[in-house]
Design a protein around this nucleic acid. Sequence first.
DNA 1: GCGTTTGGCTTACAGTGTAAGCTTACACTG
DNA 2: CAGTGTAAGCTTACACTGTAAGCCAAACGC
Lengths: 230, 230
Amino acid sequence: MKKATRSRTLASRPPLTRERIFDTALSLVDKGGIESVSMRQVAQGLGVEAMSLYKHIANKDDLMDGLVELIFAQIILPSPDLGWKKALRERAYSVRQVLNRYPWAPTLIETRGGLGPTRLHHHNIMIGILRKDGFTIELAYNTLIAFTSYIYGFVIMEQAWFTPPKENKTDIKPPPNPISPHEFPHVFEMINFVSGKGSDATIRPQPGLVTEFEFGLNNLLEGFARSLPK
Amino acid sequence: MKKATRSRTLASRPPLTRERIFDTALSLVDKGGIESVSMRQVAQGLGVEAMSLYKHIANKDDLMDGLVELIFAQIILPSPDLGWKKALRERAYSVRQVLNRYPWAPTLIETRGGLGPTRLHHHNIMIGILRKDGFTIELAYNTLIAFTSYIYGFVIMEQAWFTPPKENKTDIKPPPNPISPHEFPHVFEMINFVSGKGSDATIRPQPGLVTEFEFGLNNLLEGFARSLPK
DNA sequence: GCGTTTGGCTTACAGTGTAAGCTTACACTG
DNA sequence: CAGTGTAAGCTTACACTGTAAGCCAAACGC
């Protein structure tokens, strides 16, 4: 009772903090997608007026940066004891999982360039793992880029391909994707193949494309291994 | 003078068409980035009022879809005679080049799920190339996914890493990225290595990361080759 | 000639981010 | 305890967004 700097005498609300702002923004974006997070919405979620947020965050971009950090914090860092190959694989799956849990994340991430502290830390660890196992700095560099690119791109594809293309809410386009066998025979064949695999190809549940993910991942990892100086 | 359906009697403006709308939208987004394209802006660029556009396009999403199509139309399709490996490589570079010419494109593409006609056509051709060279449908499927993911992800990384992190226009943050050698030694080492390579690491000109691009690409292509049934 | 269709305009509304300034309630000083 | 400084939150306001609804004149088919 003594210690609290500025005790909330009104006993009403807990004080507004960056943390609390980010949290409610996160929960807000979780249901309703990224464009449902506005200053006013976030404020309302905190029982507060929009402009009050600006006492704690610089602007909306700042808010978004915070969200990105929250995302990256959820990606688990592999232990260096695993060896580089297992470590990379573990990280790959963790990234994919987290990014899939937040479909809005990739769009968000790529729109803001800079690397926050969390991302820097992650990179630092990953490079360390590679270097420890004999990767030259150049090889580590190239490896990390190729590795990250693949995972990142894969998740985006995964979402872009297997998400219904924008329910226009007033008008549902009758066939989801009427791919003519004459116009696009190969695509048609492929769609059929894919349909045969899982239950429904167009709306597959989240943990769907694991084998597809593995394919590229393995090819890359083997490539890295072959590039190692012996 | 007879033939023109609805001759522009006022002799003033050429008629508004989807094409013309897309074109000016494209040129508008080229300078000023994606968020500088608003209905009113596009309209103004055409000497017209905002609401007039809605007689030709459904809504802003429709406009954006059109832009995406314009982008994909610029990607050159490799000739099937090259053989799959050369074809894939050619396509990889074309995609990268086009996507780099329009840094706003990836964000745009990934936000709208569905595949337009152009994209379908491209996929159709690419699958055809693979199949012709002995890829099973399953292998072609996996290959295409891995391949596309990598390229796509790479371009995004390329832009995210080597673009100044949002010039706040009023305030330039003094050091672009003060990476402490103690906190992130490995990242520091890597940055140093990268700086030694090109002239300036943080703002590299466009055709910068070719060798990095090649590294992952080669690894993937070799992996594909090894997966081929013989 | 006469409807009817069409392309573009006008007005209006709900929503956005945020600049500027005000009010209140606390912490601290004398 | 009175007085003051300060920080947190609120109020108002502005410029801007996408787009629904309706109007109006010019061009068409008959």
